[in-house]
């Protein structure tokens, strides 16, 4: 099966929207359900943002093996963090962080997501046609006139910036509380004012 650059961009845009959906779900848990992310939870979000960065490069410049390499690095980093957190709570009686969703905690879901990212990236790397046979024309614009790609790129950029603001409010300019009790920066500003 031959995968065209346009088809590859569409798949990458859909994958980026899925990553954005996971980050939006994390924001809903944080702001609607009031579940503050722990430092390891925030690092899992960093892993997702790294995966998103690789996908953004594919949307901007067309699919290239080193963009998928960046996604694999992000997936391995995020997967390592989630496995670390799963192992922290795997012994019975050691408790858990946050409330479960469909029977699994968020860090377990994150581990599954990162595993799927790695598998999906490996499958995409099998289709060489997207790299060699039908390259984008040199005068194509950055997103290859792909509106879904532009939307997914902008959403990912906004979510990454939003996470920067959220982490700053929660941790302040220093080390994050573990576990977090409230928005540390806001508390310190209140105490100072």
């Amino acid at each position: 099966m031959i995968m065209t650059p346009h088809g590859s961009r569409t798949l990458n845009a859909v994958a980026l929207l899925v990553v954005c959906g996971v980050l939006i779900a994390a924001f809903i848990a944080q702001f609607v359900l009031g579940e503050l992310p722990c430092p390891l939870c925030n690092l899992q979000r960093v892993g997702l943002a790294m995966v998103g960065f690789g996908l953004c490069l594919n949307l901007l410049y067309g699919s290239k093996p080193h963009h998928y390499g960046i996604m694999l690095i992000g997936g391995l980093f995020g997967g390592s963090v989630s496995i670390r957190q799963i192992l922290l709570h795997i012994v019975p009686g050691t408790g858990a962080y946050g409330s479960p969703f469909l029977g699994l905690h968020y860090y377990t879901w994150a581990g599954i997501c990162f595993f799927l990212v790695i598998v999906g990236t490996a499958i995409m790397l099998l289709f060489e046609g997207q790299f060699t046979q039908l390259r984008d024309k040199p005068n194509d614009n950055k997103f290859g006139n792909h509106k879904l790609a532009v939307f997914a790129f902008c959403l990912m950029l906004a979510l990454t910036a939003g996470n920067a603001v959220s982490a700053l409010l929660e941790c302040g300019p220093t080390v994050c509380d573990d576990p977090p009790k409230d928005y540390k920066l806001l508390r310190e500003l209140d105490a100072g004012g």
Binding site: V46, A49, F53, T160, A161
Partner: peptide
């Protein structure tokens, strides 16, 4: 300082958008 990590990734994305891929890497 986890906020810095997100800020750097957002910066890398903007750099890629501004046609500076090697700086983004």
């Amino acid at each position: 300082m986890l906020a810095l990590l997100f800020a750097l990734l957002a910066g890398a994305t903007v750099l890629a958008w501004k046609d500076r891929p090697y700086m983004a890497y």
